[in-house]
Design a protein around this nucleic acid. Sequence first.
DNA 1: CTGAAACTGTTATGTTATAACAAATAATAA
DNA 2: TTATTATTTGTTATAACATAACAGTTTCAG
Lengths: 134, 134
Amino acid sequence: MEHFPHTPPNLTKNQSMVMAALLKANGPLSAYTILDQLRSKGLRAPLQVYRALDKLVGYGMAHRLESMNAFIACRHPDGESGSMVAFTICESCGEVAEISNDRFDSQLHKLAGGAGFNVKKSTVELFGQCEACA
Amino acid sequence: MEHFPHTPPNLTKNQSMVMAALLKANGPLSAYTILDQLRSKGLRAPLQVYRALDKLVGYGMAHRLESMNAFIACRHPDGESGSMVAFTICESCGEVAEISNDRFDSQLHKLAGGAGFNVKKSTVELFGQCEACA
DNA sequence: CTGAAACTGTTATGTTATAACAAATAATAA
DNA sequence: TTATTATTTGTTATAACATAACAGTTTCAG
């Protein structure tokens, strides 16, 4: 289950349906919201959704927002490395945006490195106000 | 509910008990684990714990680890500003450490600022290996 | 003292996530 | 192809995390 971003493997039926739901939404969805949207297409149980989400996240095609218990399609721009991903979450309008930045990523590794810690995976979620709401 | 770190208000009975449980533990605890530990002291319901935790987090005396659904006593060193807090979480031994760094904090604000986003609160949780386990 | 604000206790319920098992499907190699 | 192995699927049940609503109590400033 190792994939570079934007080189998706062939998705299974459930994985495709869940991915489509994430792409159609323009914001994060909870697993149960996804389930409700896909009941008409035959999904019946939470596990069917969670299993698909696990794969999609593993493939780098979706992200989990830890602070919201929700999932969102990966939209980080092509050309950026797959390294670090941060999210901005607007407390006014709920908009979630993805930021990817190599310099920041190395800062982050350096910060942790200073404490003798070797970073493999990071969760960075920023709350505040987006440009439109400010 | 505004407090500088390390200038704790007078805690109520429940708040003190929950804080004591967090301090005694040398790692994160789930709300239900805390509840179990405090049943012998009279606590009976999850809400009693969650309410205390909300206050303690608000006072800056405890932190919530979003990626673990767990809580940990604040231990960031005196003298550091209260700005940003990051956590390192060792995937081998489970050790959780707190890092606070002003320079990184400003990097983080700058990164978001570049996208027109104004950061009020941040969640930074880093997974990998601690010094001892590496 | 008294009224407002904060805290407490309690029951019930809502939300998020996984365990365990059996069956179907797809990918691989002989 | 056919046997073998991996993965995916479907399903039921349950675990783990969190809050709603309401009533009663304590605290404390005015």
